[in-house]
């Protein structure tokens, strides 16, 4: 069984993140690039299943700039077997339609039974790529799973639904995404880091995948980008036994209560 994990490198959400006000693209210089935290939970889910079952191989799949290679190496150290990186300058600013086409293309090329992704990325916050990939692959989807169980032929889990929780189960091949409720990733040990250096990391261009980024299909385009004015500190008081009363006054005056 082969599990592919969709890996996303993102600007570190613990630090400042900026958009370039001319291009509307992420300002790569402004932030540290890190593995998206939700991706690390997806990797953990795949690797822990591989440890508990026989003959399970874990492949990492990512689309991203040059820097994504270092992130893929670090992620390999968590116990995955191989990495696949789509790197092409024509992909800068790719919309989700193109991103899903590229990811489905590389997944179909390497072949896999199960795809695991994070539910929503911390930068784009789209949350639609896994199901778009499933549609392109002709596979079932089961997204935003709070629990995950994998067998040789099925994948199942629970997810939030309107007014409750549903249990869902799909036959493989399938694409799933996981939420923050899945266990956090392990810290890669020295052995993992050393082993990762020798693991295969393959790079693909759009030409390799037979995909044309300039094809005349409807695309999402960014029309404008504006920086929001920074919030500033207002009044700060220290409680001297009457702060509750003063707050009541403040809220009443501003007609907020």
């Amino acid at each position: 069984m082969k599990i592919a994990v969709l890996v996303k490198e993102v600007p570190d959400s613990y630090g400042e993140r900026r958009l370039n006000l001319t291009t509307g693209l992420a300002d790569r210089e402004a932030s540290d690039k890190v593995l998206d935290e939700i991706t690390s939970r997806a990797v953990e889910a795949a690797v822990s299943h591989a440890e508990s079952a026989d003959g399970v191989e874990v492949a990492l799949v990512s689309m991203g700039p040059e820097s994504a290679e270092a992130t893929l190496r670090k992620t390999l150290a968590m116990g995955a077997d191989s990495a696949h990186h789509v790197l092409d300058s024509a992909l800068a600013g790719a919309d989700m339609t193109l991103t899903a086409e590229v990811l489905a293309g590389v997944l179909q090329r390497i072949g896999c039974d199960l795809v695991i992704a994070g539910d929503v990325s911390s930068d784009g916050t789209g949350g639609v790529i896994p199901t778009m990939v499933a549609e392109r692959m002709g596979a079932a989807h089961a997204t935003s799973l709070d629990t995950l169980s994998i067998t040789d032929s099925t994948v199942a889990g629970e997810r939030a639904a309107y007014g409750g929780t549903v249990t869902v189960e799909a036959q493989l091949p399938a694409v799933v995404s996981v939420t923050e409720r899945l266990p956090d990733a392990r810290f890669p040990g020295f052995k993992g880091i050393m082993a990762a250096k020798k693991k295969p990391l393959e790079t693909y261009t759009l030409a390799d995948l037979g995909i044309d980024a300039e094809a005349d299909v409807p695309r999402s385009i960014m029309l404008s980008v504006t920086e929001s004015p920074a919030r500033t500190a207002g009044e700060k008081i220290t409680d001297e036994g009457d702060a509750g009363k003063r707050l009541a006054e403040y809220l009443t005056e501003k007609k907020l209560v």
């Binding site: 919030r231 409680d239 509750g244 009363k245 707050l247």
Partner: peptide
């Protein structure tokens, strides 16, 4: 980023509020 910041113990300020 607070318009009004209160340095104090919420367990004292909130009941009074």
């Amino acid at each position: 980023i607070a318009d009004l910041g209160i340095v104090g113990d919420a367990f004292e300020v909130v009941p009074q509020l």
